[in-house]
Design a protein around this nucleic acid. Sequence first.
DNA 1: ACCGAAATTGAACGCTCATTCAAAAAATTG
DNA 2: CAATTTTTTGAATGAGCGTTCAATTTCGGT
Lengths: 198, 198
Amino acid sequence: MARIGVETIRRQQLIDATLQVIEEHGFQGATIGKIAAVSGLSVGIVSHYFGGKQGLLEATMRHLLSSLQQDVSKLMKDRPNTPRERLMAIVDANFSGVQTHAQSSKTWLAFWTQAMHSPDLMRLQRVNERRLLSNLMFYLRELMPEPQVRSTAQTIAALIDGFWLRAAMSEGRIEPSQAVTLCKTYIDQAIQANNGAS
Amino acid sequence: MARIGVETIRRQQLIDATLQVIEEHGFQGATIGKIAAVSGLSVGIVSHYFGGKQGLLEATMRHLLSSLQQDVSKLMKDRPNTPRERLMAIVDANFSGVQTHAQSSKTWLAFWTQAMHSPDLMRLQRVNERRLLSNLMFYLRELMPEPQVRSTAQTIAALIDGFWLRAAMSEGRIEPSQAVTLCKTYIDQAIQANNGAS
DNA sequence: ACCGAAATTGAACGCTCATTCAAAAAATTG
DNA sequence: CAATTTTTTGAATGAGCGTTCAATTTCGGT
């Protein structure tokens, strides 16, 4: 059954190369030729495993999304099971691991831009957004009255995206740790301002 | 002196066409040919007035930036001169006029993505970012102790960007008015939490 | 009406890139 | 080892794009 093994390996090689090339040359500069060169494979292989460039790009975005999801799950495990700690873990996950460092944040932004003109990518993006929002709302419900839950969740989500954007734009000059701190400060402020036990 | 008049008109025609084409076809699909067709002019005219496609794109971004700046100035004039009202005016400006509607927000996002690989666009972006931040800090200084000023300003800026991003991604489904409300709610929360007169 | 200058055109050119596919290489099987 | 299938290659292809520039049109002044 080496066939499945090879296929998995090749797909991963190409996705890794795609991330690297987008980070170096931008979305526009990410050509099949460069990706093939970086991966050490040939240009023809892309069509063989992904059906074309578009397929490779979608697979790469899927890879980023699932990495984010894995980071969230992992950080959730290591925390006390209080609503506040869970919220903090979500923030941490969104600024940790694969997400933060220049390679990924540039790629995220590129995909977001691209997604606006590609229904498939748009759908993926929307699923991810909904998951983040409902995650946040689930824990916020235990910390404040219902009417404020949705607004607060939307604000936290916007804050995460905003700092992400700034981190991506600043050529890595804005420290992720600072973004995390400010997000957490807001969360505590919001809890305090809407002070009501579950 | 019709010469200057014509030049101004042509430049504006091309910039308008660029905005329209980017909104319809995305940054990638914005070709000289389409822009020329929409503007009703020929492809050669772009090189004549802007030196090339890159020049036209930079001019278009400059146009967006100055529109934003004009919105800020205009809304400032109609408000009572209290620090809090000034902050609210900044928020309003960032979600009003040219800024919010699909055409511009998609284009903003495209430019941000592009800016990461183009020093000229990056410089423009950075100037704008600094102006927003120092604007916010100027008024916040009168509402809270110095140590919290910068953090709060960064959070407001991130919030604005985050909601902007979401508005752009949601195909106009997120109401700008809602984003404004949530930004303002945060500002009042932050003032309250760091309660100290000037 | 005429002329020179400015503005505008758009076909031609050269370049980049994604895709294709016949051939080669590698792996698997008998 | 030979036969067969799977995997990989990369040159050829053609489409799309930005730029150029000689030719044409428009305009302002006289």
